[in-house]
Simulated assay, not measured.
Amino acid sequence: MKTITELLAAVPELADAEPVTRVVVPARLEYSYSPGAAQTRFLRALTRRRLVAERCPVCTRVYIPPRGVCPTCGQATTDRLELPPTGTITTFCIVNIAARGLDVEVPYCYAYVLLDGAHVGLHARIGGLPHDRVHVGQRVRVVWNEQAAPEHPEGEPPAPSLAAISHFTPTGEPDADPETYRRWM
């Protein structure tokens, strides 16, 4: 089998050319997402500053956002409940790259927040404190975006979106006992 250099040498116009070893090409993906009935209820509830979850009737796990079907048991999750806007950080990372469309100063913290009463966490930005003061076990609460206000004087509610949650911020409570979230890390 010939090398790239040998192949280039066989073409007179390319004989002295250096092989291309890397190409940087901007890419963009656009897609449409259809959330389904369970996630539509969840997204619409966010516009009213509510965190709607569903519980599996067999294994009793609570999913937020709801999936409509328990991924463990395969049973329909018809038991709906509202969770409080508080939870525990189970893991996190410090992000050092600016994200397009996110008006947040770099570096910032992104975490997996296990809401109280849930068995699956939400990914969310942590704010209200320096990123180097975020830690596992920290108790946090939702900070809602102003666009997700429950009263809409114009009569038009905001479009359902995860953007209804601006970020999570510390509650000031003592850290959670690791036994309460270790299983869900």
Rank of each mutant, 00 (worst) to 15 (best):
E6A: 13
L8Q: 10
L8W: 09
A9R: 03
V11Q: 11
V11Y: 11
E13A: 15
A15T: 07
D16K: 11
E18D: 13
E18I: 00
P19E: 02
V20D: 01
V20R: 04
T21S: 14
R22L: 12
R22C: 01
V23E: 13
V24A: 13
P26V: 03
A27L: 06
L29F: 11
E30G: 11
S32R: 15
Y33K: 07
P35V: 10
G36F: 11
G36A: 12
A37G: 04
F42W: 11
A45G: 07
T47W: 08
L51D: 01
C56V: 06
C56K: 06
C56L: 08
C56P: 06
V58K: 14
C59M: 08
P66L: 11
R67V: 08
R67C: 08
V69P: 05
C70W: 05
T72S: 14
C73D: 15
Q75K: 12
Q75S: 15
Q75F: 08
T78W: 01
T78N: 12
R80H: 00
R80E: 14
P84V: 13
P85H: 04
T86K: 10
I89H: 01
T90Y: 01
F92D: 01
V95K: 02
I97S: 10
I97H: 13
A98D: 02
A98H: 04
R100E: 05
L102D: 00
V106H: 04
V106S: 06
P107C: 04
Y112I: 14
V113L: 09
L114G: 03
L114M: 04
D116V: 06
V120E: 14
A124G: 12
A124N: 07
G128A: 12
G128E: 10
L129S: 10
G137M: 05
G137N: 10
V142T: 09
W144K: 07
W144Y: 09
E146L: 06
Q147P: 03
A148F: 09
A148E: 08
E151I: 10
E151S: 03
H152E: 10
P153L: 09
E154F: 00
P158M: 12
P160D: 11
L162Y: 12
A163D: 15
A164Q: 05
A164T: 02
H167R: 10
T169W: 00
P170I: 04
P170A: 08
T171K: 05
G172T: 11
P174D: 15
P174I: 08
D175M: 07
D175T: 04
R183T: 12
W184Y: 15
